[in-house]
Write a protein that binds this DNA or RNA. Structure first.
Lengths: 360, 360
DNA sequence: GTTCGATCCGTAAGCGCTTCCATCGACGCT
DNA sequence: AGCGTCGATGGAAGCGCTTACGGATCGAAC
């Protein structure tokens, strides 16, 4: 079954040179090698391997089998040049965020993994040049099929440029302003409401929120979730309990005094980093969660943080996010169309920093 | 001067279509466009732009000028296919380290910037597949000129595979076992000695060290620097003051008790993250630096950490590291040869966590 | 049995670039 | 003046792939 006739392990390429010097890997197998071995033409082999029509199913299978057993790997440069997909995607993110933004790092990590899974190359693109410069490069270089862009902290100009340049683009993590761009995001509002609701249901009476950067959509949605929870329970919304943060650890740290002063018994932070900062500051003041203050965050990026803190948080399914984005981008590149906005469902990790429901 | 005759802003490509639909960017300029505009052959243009010999200097200048004014950008896919450099380099790192290892993140960031500076594309490679798989892909895909590999936390097999596959390779940050690989690293021993020496010279009498992962070369060198400082001052080396850490924040945190118990008045940590962990733990016990214990780290990755801690640390010149590595890789790719080991000089940031020399 | 259409497949033309090789002119020599 | 030499130059092949395009094959319908 597996026994496809392979033309001598030494593939019929150029004269194979002297006997003793074996190449480190089975010498490069080209599509034409595969075609020859499978007894079909170059064109047919290409069609077969790329799932295009115009090839009988049994031929396709045969070619596929031969390709596999020969260890054929398409040359991406050639593929791209000839007009096909290069199987390389770009990931555009704000380079400065890399340093301290756990969310961005998690995203990067997830995309690195997901790209491998999809057998796509991952080119790292950053905003260290002007949008138009970068976009220009991308188009001209011709070795990227599409771009995934983390809207976080990137000006809208980026998206504009990318779209105007007719590059396949998928946004991750924030709502697009334009109606012609695909976006993949996590649900923000609903889980925020869930967490805050839980805090209120388990004994908290004054739950504050440290919000994120005001103009960011995700921040707004999490805040909305917080409001929802309060309103649903008929509680009056105390605007003074909404502290404005900026998604950094420092923000949580610095807001500690104010928050303690506000005599709250619970704090929902728009992301984990702020929760961590707040937690540390509280600890320094001899206060602890959940005994003194219930604490919750968002993102799930601090779960790997060193032991000692088991934060309640809304865990972003980064790998799902990345996977979805890549699938979407691929279908965009193949002009198959794709849903404009996809929201994936996060899970809530109930850590030790919030009180658990006593009954149940 | 700038007035090179350009053949109508609409470059002579395909029929330019209707009048109103201007392309988002000056339509793709190919080398042949440039050649034509400059009045030379394709071959000559290629040679001119690539700095190869066989072109008169004035011709080269003219071609260059035309290329610039036309906004020519070589198509990397084509370039690569034809056997030239693609101007894309791979950066291989341990994907799991990305999450919590500040050093790796800084490295990544630095490389992203440096790559842009050198007009190189940056492909992110990870160790989520087996070395041979990855290497195989690289070779066959044919769109990478060479690989930079952060030896940190990667098994030696990676380097082996890469080298055996005859891929241009540069190691960053650790000493190679093989003598045929180029490496770029920061000086470890000397600055470690400097910092520890300073602690000893400014009042510390018992300086402990939290070492890094034992088998790692950088860890060993920093430890050696610590020893150097002690020995140089004729102090007896107390092995019990060397605590073994693992470069994580958690290690510093957890070693706090032991360290306090050892009644030391200074601690040199093999990296900043451990210093941070230790600092936090100390703070929680009501101890502070440098009043109670002088504290120093290594890497310089925590300087951007939220305010409140100004750690004394050996700052790795990440951008220099990245730049050097890329330059080295390029010359390797061009078969120009390169120094086998390059050590770049870090700077010491004297923060508030160590006592400053009273005089001076 | 011929004709038509659909389906499968092979031929060949590039994609944009590098590089080998032949050409060509200018120069220095006898 | 004639010849060899050498550097500058253009022509053309080809990197590995996709994709019109057209030829072959087969079944069905007349």
């Amino acid at each position: 079954m597996n026994e496809i006739p392979i033309p001598g392990r030494g593939i019929p390429t150029i004269a194979s040179g002297g006997p003793p010097e074996a190449p480190p890997f089975p010498a490069n197998v080209t599509l034409s090698d595969v075609a020859q071995a499978a007894g079909v033409s170059l064109a047919a082999a290409s069609r077969a391997l790329n799932g295009k029509e115009g090839v009988r199913e049994n031929v396709r299978a045969r070619v596929q089998l031969v390709a596999d057993s020969l260890g054929y790997r398409p040359n991406r440069a050639a593929k791209n040049l000839a007009g096909g997909r290069a199987s390389v995607i770009g990931l555009l993110l704000c380079i400065d965020e890399l340093q301290n933004n756990h969310y961005v790092i998690s995203l990067l990590q997830a995309f690195a993994k997901a790209a491998e899974d999809h057998d796509e190359g991952l080119m790292l693109l950053t905003d260290s040049r002007s949008p138009s410069k970068v976009v220009e490069n991308l188009i001209r270089d011709g070795l990227i099929d599409g771009v995934i862009i983390s809207a976080i902290a990137l000006e809208d100009r980026w998206v504009e440029e990318l779209l105007d340049a007719k590059l396949a683009t998928v946004i991750v993590g924030a709502h697009p302003r334009r109606s012609d761009v695909c976006a993949v995001d996590v649900k923000n509002r609903e889980p925020a409401k869930l967490v805050v609701g839980h805090m209120l249901d388990t004994g908290c009476e004054r739950v504050a929120m440290i919000s994120g950067i005001a103009h960011r959509v995700d921040a707004a949605r999490r805040l909305a979730g917080y409001r929802d929870a309060l309103l649903e329970r008929g509680l009056v919304l105390d605007e003074s309990l909404i502290f404005s943060g900026n998604f950094t650890r420092g923000a949580g740290w610095e807001l500690c005094d104010e928050i303690v002063g506000a005599r709250v018994d619970g704090v929902f932070c728009a992301n984990d980093q702020m929760a961590l900062g707040l937690h540390d500051a509280l600890q320094l003041r001899g206060l602890s969660a959940p005994e003194d203050i219930s604490l919750a965050g968002f993102d799930g990026t601090s779960l790997d943080e060193f032991r000692g803190l088991d934060l309640t948080t809304v865990v972003q399914p980064f790998s799902v996010l990345a996977d979805t984005a890549i699938v979407t981008l691929k279908s965009l590149v193949d002009r198959k169309g794709a849903p404009r906005e996809q929201l994936v469902q996060p899970t809530v990790h109930w850590g030790s920093t919030t009180r658990r429901r006593s009954a149940e």
